[in-house]
């Protein structure tokens, strides 16, 4: 019998999340995707700089910039979160993580944490730079835009990772396809249907769009969408059997 010869360590939940986050960050920092995401995150600056130099209408420029930023954050967060679980499955590196004594939720949490934080950092730089160019004097407008964007990134990240686990062969296509086609379409629909759109709620939180005065509802909808998609991902991960042959 070999019972009791080894040491049988196991990390805490927080320790597992931190370890996964550290591994994910190291891999991100050595990948090209982070540069691609960084370039995309700064794209809204181009039309803002061009229009600001031609017309002196700071309010309008800022509004257009916010709308474009809300759209771009969907792409940036998708890029940095949709593949995180899917690529482990597709590359078969899952075996290293899944066979360790860590709960599967910790794998998702660690990867989402890094993907979302990098996305938020990139989009925050874009928003702060944009506020300077658009000469936004009201700090509250910048803060509300930053909060809306951060919540939007988290929701997008949760939804993108759900698409990634659903279609692990094509995580980015599934996620970006959804946000480009459905999220934009849903956001243009009347009544409460538009509330199912991440971009619609992000714009509303920034103080624009038809639901601009319903901050609590926007937060509720974004967190609700994030919770639903995370629950779906966790359920799928908990039941996931990594059955493909080696």
């Amino acid at each position: 019998m070999s019972d009791g010869k080894g040491t049988a360590y196991a990390p805490s939940g927080a320790g597992a999340v931190a370890a996964i986050a550290q591994l994910t960050l190291t891999r991100f920092l050595r990948s090209k995707i982070i540069f691609v995401a960084g370039v995309i995150a700064l794209l809204p600056m181009i039309p803002l700089i061009v229009t600001s130099s031609q017309h002196d209408n700071a309010g309008r420029h800022w509004k257009e910039f916010i709308e474009l930023t809300a759209f771009v954050q969907l792409l940036v967060a998708s890029l940095l979160t949709a593949p995180v679980i899917a690529e482990e499955i597709d590359d078969k590196t899952y075996a290293y993580l899944w066979s360790r004594p860590i709960p599967r939720w910790a794998i998702l949490a660690g990867k989402l944490l890094v993907g979302c934080l990098i996305s938020i950092a990139m989009m925050s730089i874009c928003l702060v730079l944009g506020s300077r160019v658009a000469k936004v004097g009201d700090p509250a407008a910048i803060v509300s835009a930053l909060v809306g964007m951060a919540l939007g990134v988290v929701t997008t990240g949760c939804m993108a990772s759900a698409f990634g686990t659903l279609l692990p062969k094509h995580p980015l296509a599934a996620s970006i396809g959804y946000f480009l086609v459905l999220d934009l379409g849903i956001g243009a629909m009347p009544f409460a249907i538009a509330r199912f759109s991440v971009m619609h709620n992000v714009v509303a939180l920034s103080g624009y769009g038809p639901d601009a005065n319903t901050v609590v509802a926007s937060v509720f909808w974004l967190l609700g969408l994030a919770a639903l998609s995370t629950a779906s991902t966790l359920r799928r991960l908990a039941r996931k059997e990594l059955s493909t042959g080696s």
Binding site: Y9, A10, P11, S12, G15, A16, A18, A19, I20, Q22, L23, T26, R27, R30, S31, D91, K92, T93, Y96, L97, R100, P101, I102
Partner: peptide
Amino acid sequence: TVYGELLAIEFVTSMARLSGV
């Protein structure tokens, strides 16, 4: 398949960390 972009020491350290060492 391994995490090709990691150094060997980073790979093994990550696995040690994930095992709570």
